[in-house]
Simulated scan of single mutants.
Amino acid sequence: MAAASGAVLVMTPGICTYFGCRPLGPVGWAIAGGAAGIAAAIGAFDGGCAGNSDNVKPT
């Protein structure tokens, strides 16, 4: 849902200029989609270790 609302903000001409941005072209969408896909893949294969304070041993 957040990606869809972000896409609407970026691609709507009147709204995007209000926020000081320009609509994305095909290369921009490819970069954004690739980054989102890589982030999702890392999150799926991470095993839940990143950011989990339960795995930290007390010193």
Rank of each mutant, 00 (worst) to 15 (best):
V8T: 04
F45E: 02
A3G: 15
I31E: 03
W29R: 10
G48A: 05
A40H: 00
V27M: 12
I15F: 12
G47P: 01
P58L: 12
G37S: 13
P26K: 14
G47F: 02
Y18L: 15
F45Y: 02
F19R: 05
N52R: 06
G25A: 02
R22M: 13
I38K: 00
A41V: 03
C49D: 07
A3S: 15
A2Q: 10
I38G: 08
F19W: 04
C21Q: 15
A32F: 02
V56A: 04
G47T: 00
L9M: 11
T17W: 15
I15N: 05
A39M: 06
C49E: 12
I38C: 07
T17Q: 15
A4M: 09
I31Q: 09
W29P: 07
A3I: 08
F45Q: 05
F19C: 06
A7K: 07
T17R: 15
G51P: 04
S5L: 10
F19Y: 11
K57Y: 02
A41T: 09
C49A: 09
I42P: 03
A44R: 11
G34Q: 05
P58K: 13
P58V: 12
F45K: 01
W29A: 12
F45D: 02
V27C: 11
A40N: 04
G33H: 05
C21H: 15
I38H: 00
V8E: 03
G34V: 04
S5Y: 09
I38M: 06
I31C: 01
D46K: 04
